[in-house]
Simulated assay, not measured.
Amino acid sequence: MNTIWNNLKEAAINSFNALGLAWWVEIITQNPRCTYYFGPFLNADEAKLAIKGYIEDLETEGAQGIQVNVKRCKPNDLTIADDLGERLDRKVKPAFSGQM
């Protein structure tokens, strides 16, 4: 039953994301100057639950000046490195695939 639920949830997330209605966690760091997008999520509550893990990972990597927003959007790039003028693409993973 869990597999069926996960498949339905993934389909819903993909549909919401295609329409720009999915929720994303946007994290902006001052050092390095980067913007990261994590998601997509089906709702804001699921996105908020994942924030702690993303912040811990970035702090472990030495990021400083971290600002977090949860919003509906459809980012073109998942990582924008302002310091380097680069746009890096990560593979999108649904929220329920262990990103927490």
Results as ranks from 00 to 15, higher is better:
residue 32 P to L: 01
residue 15 S to D: 09
residue 8 L to R: 11
residue 58 L to C: 07
residue 10 E to A: 14
residue 7 N to P: 02
residue 71 K to M: 12
residue 17 N to Q: 03
residue 50 A to V: 03
residue 95 A to M: 13
residue 20 G to F: 07
residue 85 G to W: 11
residue 53 G to S: 14
residue 76 N to I: 01
residue 60 T to L: 15
residue 70 V to G: 05
residue 70 V to C: 12
residue 87 R to A: 04
residue 61 E to T: 02
residue 3 T to H: 15
residue 47 A to Q: 06
residue 89 D to V: 10
residue 3 T to G: 12
residue 1 M to F: 10
residue 31 N to C: 03
residue 98 G to P: 04
residue 100 M to L: 12
residue 51 I to K: 07
residue 20 G to N: 09
residue 30 Q to K: 14
residue 3 T to V: 14
residue 52 K to V: 13
residue 25 V to A: 01
residue 3 T to D: 15
residue 75 P to L: 01
residue 51 I to T: 06
residue 19 L to Y: 09
residue 64 Q to I: 07
residue 22 A to C: 04
residue 1 M to P: 07
residue 15 S to V: 01
residue 53 G to F: 04
residue 4 I to E: 06
residue 88 L to S: 03
residue 17 N to M: 02
residue 79 T to A: 07
residue 84 L to S: 06
residue 98 G to A: 10
residue 91 K to V: 09
residue 5 W to M: 10
residue 15 S to L: 06
residue 64 Q to G: 04
residue 20 G to W: 07
residue 49 L to I: 06
residue 53 G to P: 03
residue 93 K to E: 12
residue 35 T to P: 00
residue 17 N to C: 03
residue 13 I to K: 03
residue 61 E to G: 04
residue 17 N to Y: 01
residue 36 Y to Q: 01
residue 72 R to L: 12
residue 23 W to C: 09
residue 36 Y to F: 14
residue 61 E to C: 06
residue 54 Y to I: 13
residue 63 A to N: 13
residue 66 I to A: 12
residue 96 F to W: 08
residue 75 P to A: 02
residue 92 V to S: 11
residue 38 F to D: 04
residue 16 F to I: 13
residue 15 S to M: 02
residue 67 Q to R: 08
residue 52 K to Q: 15
residue 15 S to A: 07
residue 7 N to C: 08
residue 39 G to F: 05
residue 5 W to I: 14
residue 48 K to Y: 05
residue 67 Q to P: 00
residue 52 K to D: 14
residue 43 N to W: 04
residue 52 K to S: 15
residue 38 F to N: 02
